[in-house]
C-alpha cells in the first residue's frame, strides 16, 4: 500500500501558489471541497484560475475566494447564484470562460485519461465554438475541445482510505471523480478516513492511483442551496 495520508489540510495544500490553475469538484454546493477552500482563503494565494462547474454562493464555496479577490479567471458552466461573481465579471475584474457542463466534465476526464482533446456536438454553431476546429462526422458537426491542464485538483469524497481510494455519496459525486488525476497533484478530503482494507474493492469509485494526498476534513457544513420539501399527506 502506498500511503497518501496527510495529517491535516495545511499539509494537504503544501505547494499551492499564486497564479496556479486549480480544479475544484462539486455541483452547486453539493460535494465541494470545503476544507481545502477554507485553506485557500487562509493561504491568500492570488491570481488563481479555478475550474469548477459553479462558483459557489456569496458567502460559501468559491464565493469565499471571490470575495477575497483571489480568483483571476473562472472556468465554469453555470454561475448564476452569486452576486459578487456577477459584479466582478461585469466590471471586468474577473475573467470568465463559460463551458457547456458535459464538455467541462469531459475536459477533466480527458486530462485524467491522457487524451489531449475530443470532439463534442455541444456548442456547435454558438459562441462557444468560435475559434475552435470543427469537423463533420457522418453528417453531424462537432467541435474540438482540449483537455484541461491544472496544477492542483481539490475533491471531496464521502469515504476514503490511506491508499487514496475514494467512495462518493449521492449526487455529491458529480465532477469529483473526474478531477482525480486530472491535475499534477490531486488532494482528496473525506468525511470519513477509514482503515485500509475496510472499503470493499468492488465498491470503490476512484482508485487510489489518481490521488496524491488524502486527509480527513475537520468539519463539513454541507450547506443546502435550495431546500425543497413536499407536504406530508
Amino acid at each position: 500500500m502506498i500511503n497518501k495520508k496527510v495529517n491535516n489540510v495545511e499539509a494537504a495544500l503544501v505547494g499551492v501558489k499564486s497564479d496556479m490553475t486549480l480544479m475544484l469538484g462539486g455541483f452547486g454546493l453539493c460535494g465541494i471541497p470545503e476544507n481545502s477552500i477554507a485553506e485557500l482563503v487562509r493561504l491568500g494565494v492570488k491570481n488563481v484560475t479555478c475550474i469548477s462547474n459553479n462558483a459557489g454562493v456569496d458567502d460559501f464555496g468559491l464565493g469565499l475566494l471571490l470575495q477575497n479577490k483571489q480568483i483571476k479567471k473562472m472556468i465554469s458552466s453555470y454561475v448564476g447564484e452569486n452576486d459578487e461573481f456577477e459584479r466582478q465579471m461585469l466590471s471586468g475584474e474577473l475573467e470568465v470562460e463559460l463551458t457547456p457542463q458535459g464538455t467541462l466534465a469531459e475536459k477533466c476526464r480527458a486530462a485524467q485519461a491522457g487524451f489531449p482533446a475530443f470532439y463534442t456536438p455541444a456548442g456547435y454553431g454558438t459562441e462557444v465554438a468560435e475559434g475552435k476546429e470543427t469537423r463533420d462526422f457522418d453528417g453531424k458537426m462537432f467541435v474540438l475541445e482540449s483537455a484541461y491542464k491544472a496544477d492542483f485538483a481539490f475533491v471531496k469524497a464521502w469515504k476514503g482510505d490511506a491508499a487514496g481510494n475514494l467512495v462518493f455519496k449521492g449526487t455529491a459525486r458529480n465532477f469529483n471523480p473526474l478531477m482525480c488525476g486530472a491535475a499534477t497533484i490531486t488532494v482528496a478530503e473525506v468525511e470519513e478516513l477509514v482503515s485500509v482494507g475496510e472499503l470493499d474493492p468492488n465498491q470503490i469509485h476512484t482508485p487510489g492511483i489518481f490521488v496524491q494526498r488524502i486527509f480527513q476534513g475537520e468539519k463539513f457544513e454541507k450547506r443546502i442551496e435550495q431546500k425543497t420539501v413536499r407536504q406530508s399527506s
Binding site: C30, I224, K227
Partner: peptide, 18 residues
C-alpha cells in the same frame, strides 16, 4: 421532493433542489 426533515445535502437535482 423529500418530506421536511428528510432532506439530504448530498442528494440534489440539477436545479440544486433537494
Amino acid at each position: 421532493f423529500p418530506f421536511e426533515g428528510q432532506e439530504d445535502a448530498d442528494i440534489i437535482n440539477a436545479g440544486k433542489q433537494t
